[in-house]
């Protein structure tokens, strides 16, 4: 796998902190990664979803998650609010469906949320132990064996997806959707939630193909969709994308998520690091020589008090 090669390469090049920061520089100047050409994805069509929660049930079973507090056919969960917020993915739910009552619309809309599997994931780029991998198949997977539990990925994810297993003291870890990578995606099969959907609200396919399908649906159904595919450019492009009949902020998808990889916001800093490493030693050694020359080297006699 390419990631292993890269990691091995970096390990070889890492001797001490200085070398580590050169690694930063390389990343800082790298061009934007536009995703693996054959990466798979899922198109979520909100106009088709009826909020049956079959996908949640399928996910729970496939991933061996703990049994839910309320059964999956209990729709009162749609009324749950925590701090005024609707449900979000957490350590017991890799995916959640929420209901949104839209003013002027005679029926509510339902929106599924899970990891969107970004092309250039913020969780991956912010992780200091390389616990995340973007596979060529399109999944963003996680390795609990190296995770330290710093939770920077949760800060960095613009979609509020990774959750932490706070309940465990000895084996806490990040819990998030992995696109059923181990059990399905690796073998070319769609994830459990897609297979369980009775409404064909979820379409599994190559990301490039899904973009074509999405545009076609928008074009062939004038007035049915807003002219935007959420996830085409959000956070630099995601494998999971959404079509909606109402503006995306009304169905709880943040329109403020930048249209470029989160990493771009950090590059200003990363690019500066090698400059400081290279220039500071000579600069400050020079200052030292200038400041102490009159005393003839750096003796330790007391100077007169200034002012």
């Amino acid at each position: 796998m390419t990631t292993v090669n890269r990691r091995t390469f970096l390990k070889g090049g890492l001797i001490g902190g200085a070398a580590a920061s050169l690694g930063l520089a390389r990343k800082g100047s790298a061009a934007t990664f536009e995703g693996y050409p054959d990466g798979m994805g899922v198109l979520v069509d909100l106009t088709r979803c009826v909020g049956c929660r079959s996908c949640e049930a399928a996910c729970n079973k496939e991933q061996g998650l703990p049994p839910p507090d309320k059964p999956f056919d209990d729709y009162s969960v749609f009324d749950e609010l925590h701090h005024g917020q609707k449900r979000r993915p957490d350590e017991a739910h890799y995916t959640v469906v929420n209901r949104y009552d839209i003013p002027g619309l005679d029926h509510p809309l339902f929106r599924k949320l899970q990891c969107n599997h970004c092309n250039e994931p913020a969780c991956l780029t912010s992780c200091f132990v390389n616990a995340y991998t973007k596979t060529p198949e399109g999944a963003v997977i996680y390795n609990p064996d190296v995770c330290v539990g710093c939770r920077t990925c949760m800060i960095a994810c613009p979609f509020y997806v990774p959750a932490f297993k706070y309940s465990s003291s000895l084996h806490p870890r990040i819990m998030k959707c992995i696109f059923c990578y181990d059990t399905r995606l690796k073998f070319g099969r769609p994830p459990a939630c897609v297979e369980a959907c009775p409404q064909e609200a979820l379409t599994f396919g190559k990301r490039t193909e899904l973009l074509r399908i999405a545009r076609q649906r928008i074009r062939e159904n004038p007035g049915k969709y807003v002219n935007h595919i959420y996830g085409e450019h959000e956070a630099g492009g995601t494998a999971w994308m959404y079509l909606s009949s109402v503006p995306f902020e009304q169905v709880g998808l943040d329109p403020h998520v930048p249209k470029e990889p989160i990493l771009n916001y950090v590059k200003d800093f990363l690019g500066m690091v090698p400059m400081v490493l290279a220039i500071w030693p000579a600069l400050f050694a020079g200052f030292h020589l200038l400041a102490t020359r009159k005393e003839g080297g750096h003796g330790h006699h007391e100077e007169g008090k200034e002012e």
Partner: peptide
């Protein structure tokens, strides 16, 4: 396990 591209 090194993740040298991360700020942390």
């Amino acid at each position: 396990s090194l993740g040298p591209a991360a700020v942390l």
